[in-house]
Design a binder for these strands. Structure first.
Lengths: 96, 96
DNA sequence: CTGTATCCTGAACGATACTG
DNA sequence: CAGTATCGTTCAGGATACAG
């Protein structure tokens, strides 16, 4: 439980994960998808999720350098859980 | 989604909710169940969950005064979601 | 018994500038 | 392109004491 909350509770964690659920992304593609998210915070969040085993990075040996971020199998299993949380939250908001 | 994370991401939110999933509790019963949780933080957390519509308080007109905390129907619907989060987190921990 | 009143601290968040 | 360096602010979490 701690581990799960540690992954999900960062300010930008779920937007980042939801974006990657749609497919692999490079750093700048993430930037474009989440324009309000500052570089440093994006880097922090990616590093944290990398270390948590939710996603992985592939550095490509080209110029200019590129990285690709992708969810691990475990990360992908968050999809249905995030959906359930979204639905639950909407129900909560509707009821009040 | 915001609403759901706002409920779950407080430091002691899930222990409190899990305890109430087992049944109604008074303030001091919560204290006994979660001895490491300081009074003020418990009060803060209960107030926050009350305001979020996850649980409700019934003050009883006796002496000494008693309060009973219980999950709302919506709060109870968190049960399966918390289970899913726990399972996911355990899978994550096991894999590393 | 059920909480409030104070006060403190660490860490997350974010803005800005800079580098390999 | 893909980040790091630095710095300032804010605020939840927590310790302690007290009150209705």
């Amino acid at each position: 439980m701690e581990a799960a909350l540690d992954v999900l509770c960062g300010r930008w964690a779920t937007p980042v994960i939801r974006e990657l659920l749609r497919g692999d992304r490079s750093f700048s593609e993430m930037r474009q998808a989440l324009p309000r998210l500052p570089d440093k915070v994006l880097a922090d969040r990616l590093a944290h999720l990398l270390q948590s085993g939710v996603l992985e990075r592939r550095r490509e040996a080209e110029w200019p350098p590129r990285s690709r971020y992708a969810l691990t199998p475990h990360g992908r299993r968050l999809g249905p859980i995030l959906d359930a949380l979204r639905d639950w939250g909407e129900g909560l908001a509707r009821e009040r």
